[in-house]
Design a binder for these strands. Structure first.
Lengths: 336, 336
DNA sequence: CCAAAGCACTTAACCGCTTAACCTGGCAAA
DNA sequence: TTTGCCAGGTTAAGCGGTTAAGTGCTTTGG
């Protein structure tokens, strides 16, 4: 196996406690010895065993993040910023992907417990309340996305879907659009429902009738179908809001296939501001919800919860920001 | 803290060794007791502490994967399939992202050592040979992508860039293209060099002069610039091969801005078959290099190396496959 | 001038698990 | 009946660290 702290201690002619104190920067070691130990560590190429360290200190200094699908372009940036912030705060970060599968979600949660994490950011909705209670029982800090109320060990990251949708609707309205369709996502996902409801409410507030609401599936294919469908409508909408970017890209393709030009005939908007939005052709007008901030905030929230003696969950707002690109423009002048 | 194996042992009226034997399925426990223990574990909601387990068994049963950028759409699928396969083989998987930064690459490697992984899949090129030696010294299995020769503990995953490029060139040639440009990537990356060289060689083999070779940066922006540049060329190429999909998407945008239609005036091809290729407009003709297979193979290779008594690294081939989509077509008929 | 305090360490008892070595009772073979 | 053996346990010694308590100095205050 590898070297142990005892090997280092022997080589440096000190006790293991001294080596440990040097490596943990407790300040209990004199400067001469400190340097000597550090030198020996370098010379031998010693790395402390993380497992032993966690076990002995009764503190894993680890944060976990559970996402539903790492391939979904929404998550990588969240994961990345989570991991970076966790490291800055002195934590190790571990990731689990559930693939939208409740069984794997349970396994992911169990993995977090086995690793004795101090906190876990849950970025998926397929999690049972039993598991959440289990986390609470073990005093493991938790953050949720949108779901669940704030409690002792539970903080909440609320993405401001309403504001995001509102910005789109108002922008389209100002650009002269009056018939604005909506392509929905999965009817069971809270975040999708929130967007749909926000759309309905914002339309009404501007005195507009919520236009055709077409089902989708959050995927490209659903958008494609919806786009083809909308291209055939008469009188069709002059703008289409999609529940996310991927759907919007599908919609654009569907509309083009159906003979509509984007944005000359119909404007299309997305949601999430994934890379796709930027690279799409035409590039997408969409809403950015600061995924990097999301990851960072999750790590910060967990740190705060797990450090406090009397933890009190908080609610964090993730702002949404309208990003104008090529897929939207002024409404075409009516010829009917 | 949480429950320990002692709590379970006490509650079930057996020794800790028995509980351990049940949980590890060693088959040394009678059926009655087995069931009793399992029941007690469920009832109390006990999860074994992974750190203690790893420490005591002197075996982390963990595989690591180091990637350069999780946000790069190439990696998530690799990571996902790696992680799935690792779990199937009974391993825990940990991920580190280096962000193309040598310092963070070193930290990632150190993290792997601290976690005492049995093997690590290195999917980045910014790694120093010192670290590789360090892995070898500790008998940690390693797989590399393209780089490095096969050795005792080192296997190699070779993506068949040559075949991929060759398929594109031959396809374009058959479609009547004779002037085929190439947009390069980073001149230091081995994988990029391999593609460029393959392009040169394949062109020559077909009796074609390697056309303009335009620098790029693997990013959208580089492609955009290159596309604008090429649109101005006269006589311009009738086809453009980009070093990767992202560049290709940029190229398309650049060409469109420069007044060229894709694929009517100019065909464009990508490389990697990221999701982007599918969603781009027009969708991209590209080469799929089976990223899921890559991740799985890496896990398999590490498993094999770390289990063998006399490990001998092997070379694994990752096949490449041409995917035809909308961004390419027959060469326009010359009018000069 | 002596006790108390401070400094720079060492000693050794854990952390929660695994596992080799050691028991024990019951049954088949001698 | 004795012996041997095996299935089905238990005991206890680590794994590689951390850390509270202890030790032998030197310094300091009254």
């Amino acid at each position: 196996m590898g070297l142990t702290i005892r090997d280092v201690a022997r080589a440096a002619g000190v006790s293991t406690a001294t080596v440990s104190n040097v490596l943990n920067k407790t300040g209990k070691v004199g400067e001469r010895t400190h340097r000597l130990v550090l030198l020996t560590v370098k010379r031998l190429g010693y790395f402390p065993n993380a497992h032993a360290r966690h076990l002995a200190s009764r503190d894993s200094r680890t944060l976990g993040i559970i996402v539903s699908d790492i391939v979904n372009p929404f998550f990588p940036e969240v994961i990345k910023s989570f991991e970076i912030r966790a490291r800055q705060l002195g934590y190790d970060a571990i990731l689990s992907d559930t693939n939208y599968d409740p069984r794997r979600t349970r396994e992911a949660a169990e993995r977090m417990m086995e690793h004795n994490v101090r906190g876990v950011a849950i970025m998926t909705s397929e999690i049972s309340s039993r598991l959440i209670l289990e986390f609470e029982r073990r005093r493991i800090a938790v953050t949720f996305l949108d779901l669940a109320p704030v409690r002792g060990y539970v903080s909440k990251l609320r993405i401001d879907y309403f504001s995001g949708i509102k910005q789109i609707v108002e922008y389209l309205h100002k650009s002269g659009h009056r018939r604005i369709a909506f392509i929905a996502g999965r009817p069971k996902l809270k975040s999708n429902i929130a967007r749909l409801e926000a759309y309905r409410q914002c339309m009404r507030e501007l005195g507009l009738e919520p236009g055709p609401i077409v089902p989708g599936d959050l995927r490209f294919e659903g958008g494609l179908t919806a786009g083809l469908h909308i291209a055939k409508l008469s009188p069709g909408p002059t703008a289409v809001m999609a529940v996310n970017d991927l759907t919007a890209v599908g919609v654009i393709k569907g509309l083009l296939k159906g003979g509509c030009r984007v944005p000359q005939d119909i404007s299309v908007t997305g949601f999430d501001n994934t890379r796709l939005a930027e690279y799409s052709n035409p590039s997408l007008t969409t809403v950015d919800i600061h995924r990097d901030m999301l990851g960072q905030m999750a790590a910060d929230a967990l740190h705060e919860l797990s450090c406090s003696a009397t933890p009190q969950g908080r609610e964090y707002q993730i702002p949404a920001e309208l990003i104008l690109r090529e897929s939207s423009g002024p409404a075409p002048t009516e010829k009917s």
